[in-house]
Design a protein around this nucleic acid. Structure first.
Lengths: 348, 348
DNA sequence: TTGTAAGCGTTATCAT
DNA sequence: ATGATAACGCTTACAA
């Protein structure tokens, strides 16, 4: 096969003008049935499969591509069910817009020569997470004049965000434990910063923390239990929760309840309890955060805070759609719902 | 801010020609330091943040975007660690190419008006999985004349594929069980078709199966145990493995070993065994497939077939890169490595 | 080293 | 309902 046919070739073959042929494919203007058929036949005979998106994109100024920027390696991002759910909602919301999602990492942001935040043909951008690099990313996006929405991140003023009531929700869970009579409570926390170092959280580390989600949830727990010891995990996973759980359960006297900052961490804490010969919730109460389904956790049903992850993604997508339509978009606040499972009970 | 500055504006401000300014940004030709500085300053003063990728893309014919098509809802796809690992390798491999990954679902394939396989500005496409829709997807891609690679799918002749020795590898595991003295073996299988119906697999269902991976691994197991009963799961997950495991363990006489077609299914089977009061591997041997790390499965280490999932992704990316460079690419065959863990032992 | 010129393939506008 | 025309913003031979 030789050179690809263009819309001009099709038009010529069909005996119409290029603009008419264009309209047949875009449907923006009415065309006679006969004309349409002639054009379509010409296209078929030439093996023309529709307008070249590159050219169309230059002309219309739209590429139909929304960039999704993660703060971490993609593998890590997709291990987190919340992020996955987010992507799901996002996919749904941008679909009617006719857009696809281009995966980007913020570490690539400045990379030259490659497809990145700085050089990809993007109509809009969704920034996920809240590493230190969010500022850089925002700057790039801004200088390009591309609409942006930030999810789960701390992006200062003037940037529409999708936010969650992390602190209030976590406080709610803590109150629940307090009402059950728990006095000694430990906290299994998410990573504090881009370093993701494991281990006990002291004041110094907390002061240097950059991950808003971790900080806010920790604050919520300590609104009720100001002195609760906290241990940071290096990621949101069962194995990390196991580790953190072991550390917390080694304390003397042992905590009677552990507040985990994610459901995966909570699942790991439960495994740690089992490993230490403790029953949940008789000997140890455990709360999670997220409200996802943890594969393989049955028969436990976590007491947790259900966050509307899919809706958050959808909201981000819709916000992007509105911005593309020229509207101004305000930050949207989402609320978690407390759900009592069978992993919390009266203090022993 | 008004209209965006173009490279022509920058050139004029800098007092050079547009082509010189272009070269400053692309670096394709040497430029005097003084010139470069003038251009860069002009760009800065005009708020010009580099060439518009849309226009560049039209001109060069390259968008720097590789489409990745999944057969399922994204959430489902990313729940599978193998797919996630695949994405990882793919990301690595296309990075030096300077390309980004655009997520696409094959259900969108025909969608009109939207960015999809048919209309996105793609340089190349990677098709993942093997649903019935693969043919449609291939057709669209072909008609656009875009290079394509198929991973984990069955795409007939003429299409470069990334393949795995599913049957041989699974046979290997079965031989291992045979050598350990196991006679009664059950199989926890992956979904058979797009329906993903759960339950025992009879000849009729097997004949109607469309998922090559499932069929091949089943064949490998039955090369050694021709009469082994098999139960299909509706997805690769621990919970589904639990279900399948229960069904298989309910048989009289009970199997002494279960071959699971994925590690997640195997983890579920182990839970089913625990639930039935059976010890692994003393009372029941279990083999997995994939060689991923199952979060939360410790202290078990699955006896499994380690597939090079990341390498598969990388190979797909490299294949795409070579096709983009004009080379012809052949199907690549990958091999699993048998890894003995602590979930298999002598038949009781 | 820099400039000139010619498109890349499409679509919006306006006139017919 | 259809057509002529003019961009869209950039890159790259090739010439100077």
């Amino acid at each position: 096969m030789g050179i690809r046919a263009t819309i001009a070739d099709v038009a010529r073959t069909a005996g119409v003008s290029a603009s008419t042929a264009s309209v047949v494919f875009s449907g923006k203007t009415a065309v006679t049935d006969a004309t349409r058929r002639r054009v379509l036949e010409a296209a078929a005979s030439l093996g023309y499969s529709g307008p070249d998106p590159r050219a169309a994109s230059l002309r219309t100024g739209r590429s139909g591509i929304v960039g999704v920027v993660f703060e971490e390696h993609l593998r890590t991002a997709f291990l987190d069910p919340v992020k996955t759910a987010l992507m799901d909602g996002l996919t749904d919301a941008v679909a009617p817009l006719g857009a696809g999602l281009l995966l980007l990492r913020d570490s690539d942001a400045g990379a030259q020569g490659g497809t990145s935040l700085g050089t990809a043909p993007l109509d809009a951008v969704v920034l996920v997470g809240c590493s230190g690099r969010i500022r850089e990313s925002l700057e790039i996006v801004h200088s390009r004049g591309i609409p942006v929405v930030v999810v789960e991140g701390d992006a200062g003023e003037g940037v529409p965000q999708i936010r969650l009531d992390n602190r209030d929700a976590q406080r709610h869970a803590a109150h629940h434990l307090r009402a059950l009579g728990h006095e000694r409570v430990g906290i299994a926390a998410l990573p504090l910063d881009a370093e993701r170092a494991r281990g006990p959280i002291d004041d110094e580390r907390l002061a240097a923390a950059t991950v808003a989600v971790t900080i806010d949830r920790l604050a919520g727990a300590r609104d009720v239990y100001p002195d609760a010891p906290a241990v940071a995990a290096s990621s949101s996973s069962i194995d990390e929760g196991l580790e953190a759980g072991r550390t917390l359960l080694a304390a003397q006297p042992r905590p009677t309840a552990i507040i985990a900052q994610s459901d995966l961490l909570a699942a790991g804490v439960i495994r740690a309890a089992e490993g230490a010969g403790l029953r949940v919730p008789e000997d140890l109460s455990v709360t999670g955060f997220d409200g996802i389904t943890v594969d393989g956790l049955a028969p436990y049903e976590l007491t947790t805070l259900v966050q509307p992850a899919v809706e958050k993604g959808r909201a981000a997508g819709e916000a992007v759609a509105r911005m593309l339509a020229g509207d101004t978009v305000e930050t949207i606040h989402f609320t978690c719902v407390f759900r009592e499972g069978n992993t919390t009970g009266a203090a022993p």
